[in-house]
Design a binder for these strands. Structure first.
Lengths: 151, 151
DNA sequence: TTTAAATAGGACTAAATTAGTCTTACTTTG
DNA sequence: CAAAGTAAGACTAATTTAGTCCTATTTAAA
């Protein structure tokens, strides 16, 4: 039930990209976010394949955020594959079976899955970044607290 | 974001124990639920430590379900430790910091965590087993579908 | 009172997943 | 054409999960 580093890095990268205005190179982004560069590259490539991020090659190239409507859920799905908390009872969950505890447990987990999806689909990166803006403003006010409060 | 086998087995064991009337030995339970015996033993010991299950030693001993009010959440917590989807921003999540994406991301994950807890705390084993009873009744009606529908 | 059926618990191993690296190739702008 | 970038796949290392093994202790029944 822990989120993977991949997903965690990916979320942070997305948030960071979304507030940048031009393309940002993987190297630059890795520095900004303190993420291992090669690993971040892989992550960005996955996000590109699902259209969350766009890339331009060559000098002055880099990654841009492509879809402000993308939700946290979309990002997690892109990076870790479909969230599958339960092992499938053969497709038709309503049928009776020989191991009732198995089916019941799957029902619970399926409900959980739906709940998680609902929660995360409601949070878009755009929304996150509104919060971010406010956050940054507050930050400028209390500059002296910065470093130790987030590590 | 996958549930562990430990948790999955544990849930099934709990459901199964809760519908039994006497104590059930680990061996017997392992057979009923198709769970590796030694592994199940470990799981049951964890569940015992958190009071979800009780044990009696010796011949005719075994495990009994101890707390019908226990929720799915309680069981998962017992088995996999506290669900910690985010890496802590030093305790005070509202303070500004040098890596805003870090804090924002943690906020999201913390909200997710709360949502998961809410969902799972609402499901007690007692409730699950009411469903189970209905389920078993239905099962007796359509006996021929049993085996292949749940594997 | 012995014996068989249980739990208790710790140490260990194997398998799988996750995290991260390395290498090589390709693309684009200056 | 050179520098700064992405693209992609193979590889390795570290961590976690799953599962096993062994030894001790408890208890009811024969």
């Amino acid at each position: 039930m822990k989120i993977s580093k991949r997903a965690y890095y990916g979320l942070r990268a997305a948030v960071s990209l979304a507030e940048a205005d031009g393309p940002v190179s993987a190297r630059e982004l890795a520095e900004r976010e303190h993420i291992p560069e090669d690993f971040l590259e892989k992550i960005l490539q996955k996000l590109r394949k699902t259209g969350i991020v766009e890339s331009t090659k060559g000098v002055e190239g880099g990654y841009t955020f492509a879809n402000k409507a993308a939700s946290v859920w979309d990002i997690l799905k892109s990076l870790d594959g479909p969230v599958r908390t339960f092992s499938s009872p053969g497709g038709k969950g309503t049928l009776p079976c020989d191991f009732p505890s198995h089916c019941r447990t799957n029902d619970v987990l399926r409900r959980l899955e739906i709940e998680i999806e609902k929660t995360l689909s409601g949070m878009t990166i755009g929304h996150l970044n509104e919060q971010l803006t406010t956050h940054n403003k507050q930050r400028e006010d209390k500059d002296e607290n910065r470093i130790k409060s987030c590590e």
